[in-house]
């Protein structure tokens, strides 16, 4: 199972800024279990959503070719807490980007008020981690589509962000494999 800590992107400006929404629901396992008699969204998972938003912003800026990992949370402040029925808006902005990684400032807003803010450092895994694949590329693309990244995403010149060719290739290969598997199973 993969963790999904945002619901979808609302805005996505390549190399600059991304805005995502997270709806907090009592149906989520962690909400009733985290603090007895006080159903709140754990701060660590709000941070996860903020990092998720920023990490994908960093990954897209590198054409989804780098293996991006959360390296460090430099500073995090919580000003409030979120409960079931709340809608969190995560905004991430790239402060610095280079071949080694990126520094991102992320915020969470609730009802227009700042509820959390963090500085997050992301690193690109280098040759010391050769052979390690973080995601199946076709599955990764499926997640990005679910997040509607390619529906709202724009480049600095206003043109839409297109699905990278290497991801489309992976998706085609996965579809071919699935077709062959289904053909074998059909009577």
């Amino acid at each position: 199972m993969r963790w999904f800590w945002i619901d979808r992107f609302l805005e996505f400006e390549s190399g600059r800024r991304a805005v995502a929404v997270k709806n907090v629901s009592y149906a989520e396992e962690q909400i009733p279990d985290y603090a007895l008699s006080m159903p709140i969204m754990p701060g660590s998972l709000i941070l996860e959503g903020m990092a998720h938003t920023g990490g994908l912003l960093v990954a897209e800026n590198g054409g989804f070719l780098h293996r991006v990992v959360l390296a460090k949370v430099g500073k995090i402040l919580f000003h409030d807490y979120a409960t079931p029925g709340d809608q969190l808006i995560y905004t991430s902005e790239i402060q610095a980007f280079q071949p080694r990684g990126a520094l991102v400032h992320s915020t969470a807003h609730l009802d227009g008020l700042l509820m959390a803010e963090a500085d997050v450092v992301f690193a690109h895994l280098d040759e010391r981690f050769a052979g390690i694949q973080l995601y199946d590329p076709a599955e990764y693309l499926g997640i990005l589509r679910s997040y509607r990244l390619f529906e709202v995403g724009i480049r600095s010149d206003g043109r839409p962000i297109e699905v990278p060719e290497h991801m489309l290739d992976a998706e085609r290969r996965w579809l071919d494999t699935e077709r062959q598997r289904c053909a074998k199973q059909s009577p």
Partner: peptide, 8 residues
């Protein structure tokens, strides 16, 4: 890892 942060 702090040195990466400092460089940024």
């Amino acid at each position: 890892i702090d040195f990466l942060d400092i460089v940024f």
